[in-house]
């Protein structure tokens, strides 16, 4: 390898050698880059950087050359808006004027509350349904009919019954989160290898012990998969729900910027929503990995 040369030992022939002795200082840098280039992660990062720059350039050019609508801001303007919005994200000047951070926190709070309520209902229900074929058959029609309904269809009903915008948003999040957790819990409970239950039976483990020590840990990876899916859906739905109920929240913020025709702020919002969604997904992916067990 080239690295051998750099030690200088093989080049002792010096004067009589046909090849010129390599200069370490010149060789070092390209070798390091070549070494880095071998790593997939490095090449991917480089390509990512290239894509960002290319996208930025095309977008910027399209705006400057008036190829797109006048309303579309150049990426540099979006970046300036981002700095402006994120400089002081938590200011609060009353109902209609609050920092983007407050809107974001408000959305996150609704998602967390609705999601937590959904998990608190769906996991026990999933155990109950998963452990009894009779209950499963009896409940199945409800699940089959209600699951395909867009959670937003419940929004007007929520408003009528709950008479409160904030609670309605939480209710909509509850509806959107409940199905994946429920179905994955049922799946996890029902698909426990029967040998584990046989062991539990031969040891005369009580029902409660079996649930706590066998069924629960066995089904947990599946439950967390359901939670991860639910969280993804909840984060999608909250934006639409807040656009409709108004008040405070990142969805309403975007809608408000539409009224202001401030597309730069809307682009910032989209990047922000995407980033938060990504963090939430990574978090649940991590938890999912933590509870996974090696089947052996």
């Amino acid at each position: 390898m080239r690295g051998d040369r750099l030690t200088g030992v093989s080049g002792r022939g010096g004067l009589y050698s046909a090849e010129p002795r390599p200069q370490p200082s010149e060789q070092m840098v390209p070798t390091a880059v070549a070494q880095l280039w071998k790593s997939q992660a490095f090449r991917a990062a480089a390509l990512f950087g290239g894509l960002v720059l290319a996208l930025w350039a095309i977008w910027e050019a399209a705006v400057r050359l008036h190829v797109v609508s006048q309303l579309v801001p150049a990426p540099s303007e979006v970046a300036a808006s981002a700095v402006e919005l994120l400089k002081n994200p938590f200011y609060d000047l009353g109902v209609n004027d609050a920092g983007i951070g407050l809107h974001l926190l408000s959305s996150l709070r609704r998602v967390m509350v609705g999601f937590a309520l959904a998990v608190a209902c769906a996991v026990p229900a999933g155990f109950w349904i998963g452990m009894s074929p009779v209950i499963a058959k009896a409940v199945d029609p409800f699940v089959q009919v209600l699951r395909p309904v867009s959670p937003l269809a419940w929004l007007p009903i929520g408003l009528a019954v709950l008479k409160d915008a904030d609670r309605t948003a939480i209710f909509v999040i509850f509806i959107s989160s409940v199905w994946p957790v429920l179905l994955n819990t049922i799946f996890g409970v029902r698909n426990i290898p029967s040998i584990y239950l046989d062991v539990s039976r031969t040891l005369e483990a009580g029902r409660w012990t079996t649930i706590r020590k066998v069924i629960w840990p066995a089904a947990l990876p599946s439950i967390l998969t359901g939670m991860r899916v639910s969280m993804g859906i909840a984060w999608l739905v909250i934006i639409a729900a807040e656009m409709m109920i108004g008040g405070r929240g990142i969805g309403y913020f975007i809608w408000n910027e539409w009224n202001n025709l401030n597309l730069a702020n809307m682009f910032v919002c989209i990047l922000l929503i995407g980033s938060v969604g990504m963090v939430l997904d990574r978090l649940f992916a991590y938890l999912e990995r933590r509870v996974r067990y090696e089947r052996s």
Binding site: I195, Y196, D198, V199, K213, V214, P217, A218, Y293, E294, R295, S296
Partner: peptide
């Protein structure tokens, strides 16, 4: 299949 619980 020994049937040990893998999470324990």
């Amino acid at each position: 299949s020994h049937a040990l619980f893998p999470w324990m």
